[in-house]
Nucleic acid binder design. Structure first.
Lengths: 340, 340
DNA sequence: CCCTCCCTTGGAAACGTTTCCATGAGGTTT
DNA sequence: AAACCTCATGGAAACGTTTCCAAGGGAGGG
């Protein structure tokens, strides 16, 4: 039944008794075609199971009609939301999305971008893992790049859509301080991170509130399981007088929760815990965790829009910051006397 | 610096003073090229920032070197794992992956497949949402299809890689029965689901154990938030004598946990809860939830391998079943007197 | 010293589109 | 009635590869 070889535009043209140019016009929607002819072409195409080849079109048009999306890890809830947002937007614009995960490895990331360029994607959206040098090169060779969810401060010319992390940390810090907490442990970005926005916002907010920052309470950690756990355990064991912990990411928050449980600390009676990233388990935790929700989906959607719809406006006026939302649940309580 | 138009194979050939055939041989690795010539070509290519166009190659080769992946929802943890597995395998085979989400809508799914066919992907991996009729058509038009994570029983000719759901449900049911539970509530597949493997396994296992199945305790629900919550609430309110709940999916498990909390039931003292899908929050829940882990990543990996590596073996001997693993945590306890 | 064979190389024909340009038919305006 | 527009249509030239085929050249064997 089905032909060995997929039908081409020529087959359709022959079957409908028209020229290939006419068939092309029918399918690409450009130009004008008589109603009767169009019908004949469509009938022939249906008969032959014809599907226009995106390869032929792409070659001619010098673009594939797809975009590339590079994230650290598709199983991370935030990344997954971001991917979903990009897919949603791409869908409305009729583009497909080539997704790949770099797993924090800059060389792998570079390799992925290289492949995307070979695919002649119309643009690339990335939550970058690599350094500025890596992306400076990539940006030169890519048609266009938009950062999403994370940006490289040294590359202001590359447009970016980000969560307002600083605002999120600020509102969380103010919330904890408002509950009376003064010795707040902060689990933040790794020390050699390119930009420690969250840590900065934490320090600034405390300063504004007139709360002295104790260096001992600010620890950085890679969000990997072990490192995060070690950082949280270190903090809570070293300083048994902290009354609240602010985790700057769900992996760190997870670590904090597990460590607190391990140390038999009651939440929030002994220690309040809050984190950035309102992932699914925050609500299911007991007590449910207060968190700052980052609009991952919106970020992805917006980045895609920026990439495809507004090539003109790109990169002007710094990164687009999307608001976060403080979701108050039961994991933070008013200050009580220090434990022990 | 960067040329307005990306360099083509012709540019490289001219710059290196060789024919385009030679450049092609250098980059595609086929045929033999003298060492000196190869060097000259590579140097010219580097100079011009040349990247072979996958579009040109794809057109000639009649394939794009990519595969399509269709899942219901990339933000679902199981799907995300599956995607990660496919990406990992595709990467080792040098293929890229076009991902899209159908959100349970068959027409949307069909549309996605249509687009993938236009892209001339080398194959499609799908966790199908649509019916058998939908996919019968898609399979005819696709080069090849592999189902992953879910299959359509009416289409045995389409190869599939699945979790051993029946085995998972069985081990969980036996575990609960072993703790003494007899009145076990089962939150399972929606009534109009194409195959209710889990429910079947639940019934079979109880029968084998000599425990009568009470129809009242077996409820089906779509895994969407509201429906799941309603089903769980209905079950627990209607029958206050159930001592354990087995949720056949993490959305249903989530609902069970929330309903139990809402009804002030202590877990596991008043009711034991266990579920299929060992998602992140299972461990962070209090008490941590006993669950059956489905090997999402392995399923994706294997499906991709099957699609690309073993086109011969595909579809022979029924679906490939990958083993699940029972992860015992604290949410299930020995039978106690019925509540109230 | 000539013939053969193998290795290297270039020319040219696809692959399936889009689009520019030319052609012809039919209708409107002077 | 002539001249002109508009619209529908087909031919043909790209687009950037791969690969078949033929040809050139050096080495080895007779």
């Amino acid at each position: 039944m089905a032909p060995r070889r997929p039908a081409t535009i020529k087959d359709v043209a022959a079957a409908a008794g028209v020229g290939i140019a006419t068939v092309s016009r029918v399918f690409s929607g450009t130009g004008s075609v008589g109603a009767a002819t169009r019908e004949r072409v469509l009938a022939a195409a249906r008969e032959l199971d014809y599907r226009p080849s995106a390869l032929g079109r792409g070659l001619k048009l010098r673009r594939s009609g797809g975009i590339g999306l590079v994230v650290p890890d598709v199983t991370d809830p935030f990344c997954a939301e971001l991917v979903a947002g990009v897919l949603a937007c791409a869908r409305t614009l009729g583009e497909h999305v080539i997704v790949d995960a770099a797993h924090g490895d800059p060389s792998r990331e570079a390799e992925i971008v290289e492949r995307l360029v070979e695919q002649r994607v119309d643009g690339v959206i990335a939550q970058p893992a690599g350094t500025e040098a890596d992306w400076r090169g990539a940006a030169r060779v890519c048609s266009s790049v938009v950062f999403a969810g994370r940006a490289l401060p040294g590359l202001p010319e590359i447009p970016a859509v980000l969560a307002d992390d600083a605002g999120g940390v600020r509102s969380l810090t103010e919330y904890l301080a408002g509950l009376g907490h003064r010795r707040i442990g902060f689990l933040g970005e790794a020390p050699r991170s390119p930009s420690r926005v969250r840590e900065g916002a934490f320090r600034d907010t405390l300063a504004q509130l007139g709360v002295p920052v104790e260096e001992d309470l600010v620890v950085g950690a890679r969000p990997a399981g072990d490192a995060a756990y070690a950082a949280a355990a270190g903090l809570l064991q070293r300083r048994d007088d902290v009354t609240a912990v602010l985790a700057a990411g769900h992996r760190l928050g997870e670590a904090a929760v597990l460590v607190a449980r391990e140390l038999d600390l009651r939440v929030p009676a002994d220690v309040s815990i809050a984190m950035i990233d309102d992932v699914a388990w925050a609500e299911l935790c007991d007590p449910p965790l207060t968190a700052v929700a980052r609009p991952g989906r919106d970020i992805g959607y917006r980045a895609c829009e920026m990439l495809l719809r507004e090539p003109a406006r790109r990169g002007r006026g710094g990164p687009v910051l999307l608001p976060t939302e403080l979701v108050v649940r039961g994991s933070c309580g008013p200050l009580r006397p220090a434990r022990r």
